[in-house]
């Protein structure tokens, strides 16, 4: 029973982790909470749904399509709504980000309607597998597998490639990186592209998991993922992964313990607690106040 809940939690948590990565990477580089990130996740789910139902793509191709679409979307959002505000106060950038978020979710409401849409059953045949007495669906295995694969790919890009190094340098010290000849604008665009593509994959997976894609799925998922990023330590990539998993498990356990009507409040309770007790999160670095 406990194992069962644990696996349910890990599957849910992997999707939080995928979204949380986008928050944490963007925050690491331009210290902005990309409020529209949840809406990118939502857009990814819709694009995936469209590719599966209308163009009859298989799930993997649809996911790839959604990732490419959202990459472009993330880059464009940064270009229009954040880049002009890079020298403004953080308050301005944050308000602009909220504007983008509201705009996109309303747009989705108008285009797709208020009802949640589901993936067709044929999209991914779900079977139950019994492991150590726990019922695990192939869908959960898919989610965990794909998430793990994508996170490994991300880790490779960030640690081993040249652009990944530039990303880490920019995140460490924006101004010095610029002085060292790193094209900071390009790095920021790349970061948005990377984070958005992960969110898109998360969107398709969540759409499959709950069999529901709706215009307002971004807000709550985004907030939870952000909580996960903070729990793990904002700016830290392994932290986002860990935070996502922990949050997913906590949520599933909370529901199993009978607090289902407070399901969405669990994430926030954790968020507030972390910020009060250890604002740097589990794996975050201590930030020295700059005077």
């Amino acid at each position: 029973m406990l194992l069962q809940q644990l696996i349910n939690g890990i599957a849910l948590g992997s999707t939080y982790a995928l979204i949380a990565l986008g928050y944490t990477m963007v925050y690491g580089i331009i210290t902005l909470i990309n409020f529209a990130h949840g809406e990118i996740f939502m857009a990814g789910a819709f694009v995936g749904l469209f590719l599966v139902t209308v163009l009859k793509f298989n799930v993997f191709l649809a996911m790839a399509g959604a990732m490419i679409f959202c990459m472009i979307m993330g880059v464009v959002i940064e270009l229009i709504a954040y880049r002009p505000l890079r020298k403004s106060s953080r308050l301005s950038a944050l308000i602009s980000a909220i504007g983008v978020s509201i705009f996109l979710s309303t747009l989705a409401l108008m285009v797709f309607g208020a009802d949640a849409k589901g993936f067709p059953d044929t999209a991914f045949p779900v079977q139950q597998v019994k492991i150590l007495g726990a019922e695990i669906s192939t869908l959960q295995l898919l989610i965990i597998g794909v998430s793990a694969l994508l996170m490994l790919a991300l880790e490779f890009i960030v640690q081993k490639t040249k652009i990944g190094k530039a990303m880490r340098a920019t995140s460490e010290d924006y101004n010095t990186a610029a002085l060292m000849g790193i094209n900071v604008n390009r790095i920021i665009s790349f970061t948005f592209a990377l984070g958005s593509s992960l969110a898109a994959a998360g969107g398709v997976l969540v759409g499959l998991l709950f069999n529901a894609v709706s215009f307002n799925m971004g807000l709550m998922a985004g907030l939870k993922a952000f909580s996960a990023a903070v729990l793990g330590g904002i700016g830290s990539i392994p932290g986002a992964m860990l935070g996502g998993l922990l949050l997913g498990v906590a949520e599933v356990m909370g529901v199993a313990a009978g607090y289902s009507s407070y399901r969405d409040a669990i994430a926030f309770a954790i968020l507030v607690l972390v910020l009060l007790v250890k604002p740097t999160g589990l794996l975050g670095q201590k930030i020295q106040k700059k005077v």
Partner: peptide, 19 residues
Amino acid sequence: QYRMLVYGGLLVFMMVFRP
């Protein structure tokens, strides 16, 4: 009809052009 759409656009527009 498009209230929230306008608000969303408005927030971005105001911050970028008329802070």
